[in-house]
Design a protein around this nucleic acid. Structure first.
Lengths: 358, 358
DNA sequence: TTGAAAGCGCTAACAC
DNA sequence: GTGTTAGCGCTTTCAA
């Protein structure tokens, strides 16, 4: 294979197809794209020639001339996060159903890379860009997103924010997200109903909208059950399995003044579970733990994790569905998707260790 | 937002930037792409104008005129599979490091969708397409891939097969994969060393190259330990958690003539683990189980899974690295990546239940 | 029904 | 150094 990666070789063009079929380029084009009446006989000849030559249209030329392919882009922190992967899969599935091409980009949570990727998508002429995941909502963020929105809108493209706020309701972007506060309130309530009163929230990320909402829901539930504000104990260790593992380990060394932990998401729950086991404690007998998101393997944790189910794939599908529907009504529209608790085996009443030593 | 998705609006062009900067389009182009000497002063003016106008180049026009962006495409079965996600992340990371754009496509294991996607990538002018994952290697497959390879090569693009065979060594494609047989032999050996003699292989998928290789390794290990061919017991239930769950459940109903199970991958191991627990048995005391791939959450299974580590992200990175290196030497080259066992807690000697009832 | 021709936005010769 | 010009491959008026 003497194949120089730097110099793309010439491809078969529509002109060659036309020549072989004995028609003009225009006719060939019409036969190929099929949007213009062409006699069946000629059409067949053209198609035949195209197949013989293994012709594929040059998407760039086509886009330039007007008939561009519709392309959507999803931007996530990382594809290997089960939650993000599901959202991306939802977007890709819904896009594919509509004949759109879908590109996924990973930013590693770096605003710089996010900007570069959005820029790239603008250059490529993406008609829909979907930004996924909570963020710390500071001025830089607001400015960045306002710019994306305005720029995308100026070229007739759409911006949707998944699980992150619009910097301003007036901005040409729409947001689709889960009701984090409600989900957190519900699962905290579940813990409270089981009798827990000292619940620590593990995985705070101050400034991050998704986590802040979860913390707010947690505090609200505590308050609803008549607990004072100092009943709340949130550990701002951030997200991810490693963070959960470390933070839980440290917490266990310092204090055991809690009977349950509410992990910011299922990955930190995974880390917490491991740390608890490493400390020689049992879940749920010694400490109960709940997570957030219900990632596909949450039921395989030890024990199976009680968590909040956020239909991630549906979030992705909804994002494209809503963006493509109602061209007029989209500006600033805000959609909330429901969540629910899935009860498995990581919660028991406090003190269960004595009652049922397994 | 009156923003019609069907009619992309006009974008700022380089001509407008040139006018605003008071230079010709050519000068503007040179200043912007910076590959041609331009006096700092003019350069600054052009850049300024571009920023003021929020200009982004039209990637299609640029590609058409010759300066196309380098684009790589990864094709996987589904993004939500932890293993595939890691491979995709590796490809995307390595591509990004080199300033390439990376597109990921999901096929849902449908050859039809795979073909469409490859076609699409040809149209878009992808210079590198990476097909990931085992397949059933039949004539249809061989023909399909031979066609991809030939077509891609004809336009100067590269095809790499990850974890699937080249239909013919002469074909312009290169393959990068793990040594499935060696990995399977090693982990089967691990089970044998622990004293197991009745090991069932759960998750065969006859015809699938990756699984067949694993089964071959399993059989080879059995033979090496002096066991006859009828010591092998492979259950062809295919891959995935659901398959593992169902197959293991059925197996447990029929017979207990085994002390260990070798799951075709970690997802079927997850299902098997659950089925075993549902049957009231313990792992590893009553039955040992091992998996394949070492997906990120394998250590969170109950119990933590002993499995074969296949560095998936590295597979992805290697695919692009090798494809982009040595333009000449790539044809038919075959690269094998090493794997190793990671020992956790899902294996114990058979009969451990009596010895240590926990 | 079909062909000729004019661009789409950009880059790369090729002058000046 | 900088501008002029000719395409890149395709779609699409506009005539015939």
């Amino acid at each position: 294979m003497d194949n120089d990666m730097d110099e793309p070789r010439r491809r078969v063009t529509i002109r060659e197809v036309a020549e072989r079929a004995g028609v003009s380029m225009a006719t060939a084009s019409r036969a190929l794209s099929g949007n213009h009446p062409v006699p069946p006989a000629t059409r067949a000849r053209v198609l035949r020639a195209a197949r013989d030559l293994d012709y594929v249209a040059n998407a760039h030329a086509r886009a330039l001339a007007g008939g561009g392919r519709k392309m959507a882009a999803v931007v996530v922190r990382q594809v290997t996060s089960p939650f993000y992967a599901q959202v991306a899969e939802g977007v890709e599935a819904e896009a594919a159903d509509r004949g759109w091409l879908c590109v996924v980009g990973a930013t590693g949570a770096d605003p710089q890379r996010e900007m570069e990727f959005v820029q790239l998508m603008r250059e490529e002429g993406a008609r829909l860009v979907i930004l996924v995941g909570g963020v710390v909502e500071d001025d830089a963020y607001r400015e960045r997103v306002a710019h994306y929105a305005q720029a995308l809108d100026a070229s007739g493209a759409r911006l949707v924010l998944c699980g992150r706020p619009a910097p301003d309701p007036e901005i040409p972007a729409l947001v689709v997200e889960f009701d984090n506060e409600a989900g957190a309130r519900a699962i905290t309530g579940h813990l409270l109903s089981a009798g827990h009163r000292r619940i620590v929230f593990l995985g705070g990320l101050p400034g991050n909208t998704a986590l802040d909402a979860r913390v707010a829901g947690y505090r609200a539930a505590l308050a609803e059950h008549g607990l004072g504000p100092d009943a709340a104990h949130v550990v701002d260790c951030g997200l991810g399995r490693a963070a959960g593992l470390r933070a839980m380990g440290e917490l266990l060394k310092e204090t055991r003044e809690f009977t349950a932990v509410f992990a910011g998401d299922d990955m930190v729950a995974a880390g917490a579970l491991r740390a608890i086991a490493d400390a020689g404690l049992r879940v749920p007998e010694d400490v109960s733990v709940v997570g957030y998101n219900d990632i596909p393997l949450a039921e395989d944790f030890n024990p199976p994790l009680t968590t909040v189910r956020t239909p991630a794939e549906e979030l992705g599908r909804a994002a494209v569905r809503i963006a493509l529907r109602d061209p007029g009504s989209a500006a600033g529209s805000h959609h909330l998707l429901g969540t629910h608790i899935v009860v498995r085996r990581s919660v028991a009443p406090p003190g269960a260790a004595q009652a049922a030593p397994s």
